[in-house]
Simulated scan of single mutants.
Amino acid sequence: MIELLTVALASLLAGFVDAVVGGGGLVLVPALFSTYPTAAPATLFGTNKGASVWGTAWATHQYAKRVTLPWLALLPAALAALGGSFCGAWAVTQVDPSGLRKALPVILLAVLLYTLAKKDLGRHHAPRHTLRAQTAIAAAIGVVIGFYDGFFGPGTGSFFVFLFVRLLGFDFLHASATAKLLNTATNAAALVLFASKGHVWWHIAAVMAVANVAGSLVGTRMALARGAGFVRGMFVVVVSLLILKTGYDAFLR
């Protein structure tokens, strides 16, 4: 019961972080690995997806009721993200991702410095493309980051948010809402793959899913109430933590 309570609380916090700006895996995955140190990594990753997919789906539903999103552009992007995630999951069985592990903190640092340098980045919602161009760019983002999520994973939500802000002119609130839709697709693809291999502890995932949705509800409401500035601030915090975590894993561990 203590172990279950620990991962449920971690899932609650992860759901909150994920709903605001992504990066819930930064909380939940280490909690799972420390709580169940002898478990197979694939099983812990699968159980994580079994919980987080519900939180991202719930956040998508909540954002959709309050934020106007270009669904005609985003639904193809969600399908592209799902396909990219499947391809990435297959690729990781063929190629060693250790090189990406060392490059990731450098890429995240570049994203953070760019965001801090552009003081107005993502503060105002001003989409800058036609629907056709928006659809093509969103689909490209979906397939590339979807592939990355299936292949490696850390920071997926943050990459979605940053690219929708930088390439499509979304503010951080709209970008976060959009990221939830695409992240739901990538999480679902990964969950199907892990489940097909028997790598999900469903009884633990079910408890964690309830906690994740609860955290998602709080995070979504806070983001909607406080707006793009709050989401931008959370983005900076989460990316900074991701740089520290991935840098430690790549160079010091």
Rank of each mutant, 00 (worst) to 15 (best):
M1H: 09
M234G: 08
L182V: 01
W90Y: 12
I141S: 06
F230N: 01
V218F: 05
R128W: 00
L131C: 14
V218W: 03
A126T: 15
C87E: 10
T93A: 13
Y248V: 13
L5Y: 08
G88Y: 02
H174P: 00
V200M: 01
W58M: 14
T156Y: 00
R232I: 10
L252A: 14
R132H: 11
N48R: 05
P37K: 05
D96H: 08
L44E: 10
P97S: 09
G15F: 00
R221C: 10
F147N: 09
F33M: 08
T38C: 04
R128H: 10
R101H: 15
K180P: 07
W90C: 12
D96T: 06
T184L: 01
D149Y: 00
R66G: 15
P76H: 09
G198W: 06
F230V: 01
G23W: 00
P70L: 13
F147G: 06
T47C: 03
F152Q: 06
I204Y: 12
T115A: 10
A214D: 13
V239A: 12
P30C: 06
T130Q: 05
G23I: 02
T186S: 13
E3P: 02
H199P: 10
K102G: 15
A10C: 09
A64D: 15
V218Y: 01
I204K: 04
F33Y: 11
Y63S: 12
K118W: 09
L193Q: 12
P30Y: 09
K197W: 06
L72A: 11
T60Y: 02
A89C: 10
L112C: 13
T178E: 02
G157D: 01
L217C: 11
A214K: 03
G15L: 05
Y63T: 12
L241H: 02
P70N: 06
T47H: 06
R101P: 15
V92A: 08
S240Q: 11
W71H: 02
I243A: 09
W58A: 15
T135M: 13
A103N: 12
F164G: 09
V67P: 05
A14V: 04
G15T: 05
H174F: 08
S158C: 12
A195N: 09
A80V: 04
Q94V: 08
A40G: 02
L108N: 09
D171H: 03
M1K: 03
G150C: 10
